[in-house]
Nucleic acid binder design. Structure first.
Ligand SMILES: [Zn+2]
Ligand SMILES: [Zn+2]
Ligand SMILES: [Zn+2]
Ligand SMILES: [Zn+2]
Lengths: 130, 130
DNA sequence: TTTATAAACGCAACAATGTTGCATAATTGT
DNA sequence: ACAATTATGCAACATTGTTGCGTTTATAAA
């Protein structure tokens, strides 16, 4: 069952995520929805969008959860979305980088589900500023 | 300057981290120190141990920060500690796995500092249980 | 051993992020 | 239009981490 509804708030949240070049936290997204809904609703919409494989969840190196659209990643790719994330230590922005297939050197008695590859450093924009 | 002191609480925290096979969060560590110090002190001790390169910090896939000893990783390795972390979705335990050197497929205009590689799935212990 | 000094600590208060329960509102298929 | 159920608002709570400040304690020097 579970009929999916396309509400105003949901459309707004999804559009905000899609239009942004970098991943965004719930706090940043809520700041942009201009009070069309409660902050709790944003959390619940994000949950739903993840479940619907329209966005994906990324933990930044500081522990804050960010969300980015699933443009580049297909449905199967998403399940083991092994693309790389770049976390800028200067501007704190988190960016999805093209797929980066890697060889896992891991004992065979571990059952692998998803791979999370995040690289910290300085992004092009911040290098120019420096 | 900055004289490093080896206090009772610090020794206890370090020992707890060393004796545990998997990485631990501040909450888990504080639960084990048996009230020999305040929870804020645990946070501050962890900070210091990271700075002294005795332990390293790992963000779990749920955003919670965990700590593990720097046994296997040498001083240089630590700076770009490119070993792999396994995050069990069943028991929630986070384990350091042997070094896993990878080829980064990343545009040259990004300045890379550290690589964080975390794999989710089911750990050997939980596979046996299932 | 005593003393001086900076490091470490306790406590209370705060801040950020995320979750839950429940009554109400809105969307969709019939 | 109506019923079914999805989605929302609001308040309250939970967890994780931080800050300020006065007090205690470890260490090195006297
Ligand atoms: Zn940047
Ligand atoms: Zn991504
Ligand atoms: Zn497990
Ligand atoms: Zn590790």
């Amino acid at each position: 069952m579970a009929i999916i509804r396309n509400t105003i708030a949901k459309k707004a949240v999804f559009e905000i995520i899609q239009l942004n070049k970098t991943a965004m936290s719930q706090t940043e997204i809520f700041a942009k929805v201009n009070n069309i809904c409660d902050r709790v609703t944003v959390y619940r919409i994000l949950e739903r969008l993840v479940k619907e494989v329209k966005i994906h969840k990324i933990v930044n190196i500081n522990g804050v959860i960010n969300y980015a659209p699933c443009n580049s990643c297909s449905h199967e790719q998403h399940l083991h979305h092994d693309h790389l994330h770049f976390s800028c230590t200067t501007c704190k922005k988190l960016t999805c980088i093209a797929d980066n297939h890697i060889e896992l050197n891991i004992p065979s008695n571990y059952q692998v589900a998803e791979v999370f590859l995040t690289v910290s450093g300085i992004c092009p924009d911040c290098i120019i500023m420096a």
